[in-house]
Design a protein around this nucleic acid. Structure first.
Lengths: 155, 155
DNA sequence: TATTGTTATACTCTATAACTATA
DNA sequence: TATAGTTATAGAGTATAACAATA
């Protein structure tokens, strides 16, 4: 039986995940940490509360991620002149350079993937992706959830 | 600036992940556990070593997942008549039923997503997805890795 | 001697709750 | 009184290494 569209999208997710795992092997970097660095690259120095919202995570969790990134020299916690309770998490110069390189690699990978699609098909293909993404956004934004009635009848 | 193809594929990954997270909230289920149950549904009772290969994980990790699933009644460890070192991890009847329901929900979600694409575009869209998936498979199968030169010059 | 799955140990991500310092 | 970020505590996933039982 042919895999469904969803199966294929999940296979793509899984391969992308595997690729980043392999890229980070042997380093102290992880996906959540790099996600945080990515946000910092684009938003500039930010209080942890803002990062928590950006990552869809809790303030406590951001503390842990920033601890790890600070210990390995990717970020610094600087005082926030506007609010002495808060802190401004700031990329170090080396981390900035690294994230810009990763951004270039990311763009290159995107190009490689798009080039696999027949040039004549690319417009339609991108429209399709956009449509699926928009639909998925609707579904997730609604109260609905895909898997119901799990754990027997108790949910 | 418009998001690239890769950005959109990653957004889809992230939303799919969010959807399952929400589905499993309040239960003892997690993505790795359900992945294991899914493999069992399709492969039948299996030794842990086989599950480790199927999940791309370590035997030790499978022990932990099976422990959790056994404690919550989703699987049993049964003796393997062919090899007394090994064990046959087996779905309980309730878990079987649940996984079949999840399979139906999964198929329904796939349908919903495909329906978001213009009927005239679906053929080309699926071809495009297949092409991207195939390319990504090549890239991940090769020794290449997307993000190079991370952690300064040390990698 | 090799393999299956375990115990031992460790690290990361994540969450909730209680607390401190500041607003 | 409310907010920012911490300490305290806990659970889940993952990994390596050493070990027991079996092949």
């Amino acid at each position: 039986m042919r895999p469904t569209i969803l199966d294929r999208l999940l296979a793509i997710s899984s391969l992308l995940h595997e690729d980043t795992q392999r890229s980070f092997a042997g380093t102290t970097l992880t996906e959540p940490r790099v996600h945080l660095l990515w946000v910092l690259l684009h938003s500039g120095p930010s209080p942890q509360r803002v990062l928590a919202e950006a990552l869809g995570s809790t303030p406590r969790n951001i503390s842990a991620l920033v601890d790890g990134l600070e210990a390995t020299g990717y970020v610094r916690r600087e005082p926030n002149p506007d609010d002495r309770r808060a802190v401004l998490v700031t990329l170090t110069d080396e981390a900035s350079r690294m994230m810009r390189r990763m951004g270039e690699d990311h763009a290159r990978l995107s190009e490689l993937l798009l080039q696999a699609v027949d040039p004549q098909d690319r417009g339609v293909f991108e429209r399709g992706i956009d449509a699926v993404l928009a639909r998925l956004n609707e579904l997730v934004s609604s109260e609905e959830v895909t898997y119901r009635d799990i754990e027997g009848e108790e949910k």
